[in-house]
């Protein structure tokens, strides 16, 4: 899956940093039918977690009725230099992990 990840490269200690992530995903709701009338199976990202140096920043439970290519934005307080790790899982059982490094001055 293609991902656009936006985390500031540097931040001051104690500063709130904005994190933006755009994930390429069909987010198929499971409510639609194809041209033959067969139900299109649900295929959404249902679980998303962001951790910062191992500590959980945000955990999201996602449901259908979210558009394709979901965009998530949230903030975190910069404390120490290290890594933001993003992990999500979809209905196919596939999971993906992305990492972004940040330097805290």
């Amino acid at each position: 899956m293609r991902v656009l990840l936006n985390v500031p490269k540097t931040a001051k200690k104690g500063e709130a940093v904005e994190i933006k992530i755009l994930i390429s995903h069909p987010m198929e709701s499971g409510q639609r039918r194809d041209e033959m009338g067969r139900a299109v199976p649900r295929m959404v990202i249902h679980d998303f977690v962001c951790t910062y140096n191992g500590a959980e920043v945000i955990r999201l439970a996602l449901f259908p009725a979210i558009a394709a290519n979901p965009f998530l934005a949230f903030s975190a307080r910069a404390e120490d230099s290290g890594a933001f790790t993003f992990t999500w899982m979809d209905d196919s059982g596939a999971s993906q992990t992305e990492t972004a490094l940040i330097v805290v001055e």
């Binding site: 293609r2 656009l4 936006n6 933006k20 755009l22 390429s24 290519n69 965009f71």
Partner: peptide, 13 residues
């Protein structure tokens, strides 16, 4: 905002 523009996923590809 390129960070929000889903078209940028295709640009990346």
């Amino acid at each position: 905002d390129d960070a929000e523009n889903p078209g940028m996923l295709w640009v990346e590809q």
